[in-house]
């Protein structure tokens, strides 16, 4: 029960804090939606490793993995909304980011995480056509890229997210991911 309470707080507080950002007063709706799509994706990212590894109480592994797939789909949709909304707000800045020619270093991390996310999603669709061990290794590797890229992306941005709640969320995403990967069978199988 405690785990769920902590999760709910960790996910809701950063979103609520960002909703109170003074920067919102000077942004148009499309830009605001794009920003919150990114924030929501970052918050939902916390659930992914916990669900994949079956670390949440009260859920069977099967059920947890089904939710993991649904959230994975939501993450893809949110990232498309994030990039699409930013594109409408300022096309040349997004083109620079996608081409890795942006002056802002966080853009490249975000774009790398985006491609890793798309890759992980495509791979999830092909799961039954691949050998389980290969599938797990590649999906886990992509997950690590997604998490690392997203965290650096978020931390380097001076945006609507409030600093303390942002850092706390990023730290928890990192810890949850490392815990899930450390316990994942992908690596134990490899060692055998």
């Amino acid at each position: 029960m405690l785990v769920w309470a902590v999760l709910a707080i960790t996910i809701c507080v950063p979103i609520a804090a960002a909703a109170a950002s003074p920067l919102l007063a000077w942004r148009q709706p499309v830009y605001i939606i794009a920003g919150f799509a990114g924030i929501a994706a970052m918050a939902l990212l916390l659930l992914q490793p916990l669900l994949a590894a079956g670390l949440l109480p009260g859920l069977t592994l099967q059920r947890a993995r089904r939710i993991h797939r649904w959230i994975g789909g939501a993450l893809v949709a949110l990232v498309v909304l994030h990039v699409g909304g930013l594109w409408i707000t300022s096309p040349p800045d997004v083109v620079d980011a996608l081409l890795f020619t942006s002056p802002t270093p966080f853009s490249a991390w975000g774009v790398i995480a985006m491609w890793a996310l798309f890759g992980a999603a495509v791979l999830a669709g092909l799961r039954h056509r691949l050998r389980p061990r290969l599938w797990r290794r590649v999906h886990t590797a992509l997950a690590l890229v997604i998490v690392a890229g997203s965290i650096v992306h978020a931390l380097l941005i001076d945006g609507t997210m409030e600093t303390v709640s942002k850092v706390a969320l990023c730290a928890l995403v990192l810890v949850a991911t490392l815990k899930a990967v450390a316990g994942a069978r992908a690596w134990t199988i490899k060692r055998r």
């Binding site: 942004r27 830009y31 853009s107 941005i157 001076d158 945006g159």
Partner: peptide
């Protein structure tokens, strides 16, 4: 000037 696209 206010921060936009991650930087002021």
């Amino acid at each position: 000037i206010v921060p936009a696209f991650g930087q002021a």
